[in-house]
Design a protein around this nucleic acid. Structure first.
Length: 170
DNA sequence: GCCAACGTTGGC
DNA sequence: GCCAACGTTGGC
C-alpha cells in the first residue's frame, strides 16, 4: 500500500459507475455506501467490515467491468437511512427504527487506478482463479478478498500503469 | 438486449 | 419448510 503496511481484512465493493464511480468517490473524498439490499451483503456490512479495512472499488455493468481503485472503510456501520425514506427507491416498509433491516457504511477514497484492471484480465491470472469475482455468477455486491488476491490485483494495477508509461515516446 | 445464475416471495 | 414463480444482477 502507498505509505503503509497492509493490515486488517480486504473486500471488493461493486458499483455501477453510471450510478457512482471511483471518479465520484475521488471527487467526494468519502461517501455512504448505502442501498445494499441483499442479506449476505448486509451481514458483511453489519458484522464484518471493520474501520480501516481496504476494499477494491469494482465497476460493474460497464464495458469493461473491472477493478477501478481502492477505498477504505471509514466508520462503524449505521442503519441505512434510505430504508426509512418513503420517497427513496431503497425504501423498505418492513424496516423500523428499532429494528432496521439494512445497514450502510461510510467509505473513504484511497486510490484511483491509472487504468481499470478489467475482469477479463483478472480471469486470465491463475493466482486469481479462486477469487470470488472471477467466478461465474458471483453476484454478491460485497465480497471478501483473500490478502494474496488483493496483492495480485494491486500488482496488476501497477503493471498496467508501467506498461502504459513505457509506451509514451520520450 | 439476451439470458444464466442468483435471490426473494408467497402459496400451500 | 418446500419450491415454483417472479425479479434482479451483471457478463457477454
Amino acid at each position: 500500500m502507498p505509505g503503509g503496511v497492509m493490515t486488517g481484512r480486504f473486500w471488493l465493493l461493486k458499483s455501477e459507475p453510471s450510478t457512482y464511480s471511483i471518479a465520484d468517490l475521488e471527487r467526494d473524498g468519502h461517501t455512504a455506501w448505502d442501498g445494499v439490499r441483499n442479506y449476505r451483503a448486509r451481514n458483511l456490512i453489519r458484522d464484518q467490515l471493520a474501520v480501516d479495512d481496504l476494499a477494491i472499488f469494482y465497476h460493474s455493468s460497464v464495458e469493461p467491468p473491472g477493478a477501478a481503485g481502492l477505498l477504505r472503510i471509514a466508520a462503524r456501520p449505521v442503519p441505512d437511512r434510505s430504508q426509512f425514506d418513503a420517497r427513496s427507491p431503497f425504501f423498505d416498509p418492513r424496516a423500523t427504527r428499532d429494528a432496521p433491516r439494512w445497514w450502510s457504511v461510510e467509505v473513504a477514497f484511497v486510490e484511483r487506478f491509472a487504468t481499470i484492471v478489467p475482469l477479463g484480465i483478472l480471469k486470465e491470472h491463475p493466482e486469481l482463479s479462486g477469487m470470488m469475482v472471477t467466478q461465474r455468477g458471483a453476484r454478491l455486491s460485497i465480497q471478501p478478498v483473500e490478502p494474496s488476491h488483493f496483492r495480485v490485483v494491486l500488482r496488476l494495477a501497477r503493471a498496467r500503469l508501467h506498461a502504459r508509461t513505457r509506451r509514451i515516446p520520450v
